[in-house]
Amino acid sequence: MPVCKHCGVEIEEDLPCCPLCRSSIHGGDPVGEQNIRTPLPETAAHQKSWFWGLITLLGLGGGAIVSAVDLAYGMSITWSRYPLISIAYLWLTVSLFIYLRKHIYSLLLFETINLGLYLWILNSLTPITPWFFSLVIPLYILVSVFYRFDAVHRPQIQTGDYGDCGDRDDQHGAFSPASGNDPQQVYFR
């Protein structure tokens, strides 16, 4: 069993150099530490997080400016409540889209709640006859009926069964009778 002259450890016979100091088994100096400085791949998650941060910053900045102008003008928050509520609504809409776009039903549900909440708050802030229950709710029901009708009559896209493990495993190169790769004839050597 070869022994590294620098580290004093025994090394597997088939290894050309010591895994610890990188010096050759047949002599030679250790290779210096080489930290790989490869930049990290910019993953989708990073981009998503960066974009969400930007949107949040813009929203907070816009809200702060609007509030400051309103306060400077009248020493109270009056008209700025409308743009503030709208900014919050837009921020939540974009955030929901960023994080739930792959979960369409959850996205629809939360966007609906978000819009309803936004309109209800607008209605509460408006000093005229309430219009939320008389106008918004009937419109909601109407849109829901149209959506259901559209969903029922739209041609269904056939997708593979996610529960079918065999097919999925084939993609990773595992054995499956369906792939013609008969495991009964294979020895691992």
Binding site: G163, D164, C165, G166, D169, H172, G173, A174, F175, S176, P183, F188
Partner: peptide, 11 residues
Amino acid sequence: RHHHIPRIRPL
């Protein structure tokens, strides 16, 4: 609960 037993993969 998964309805399938995992299949072995080559190492």
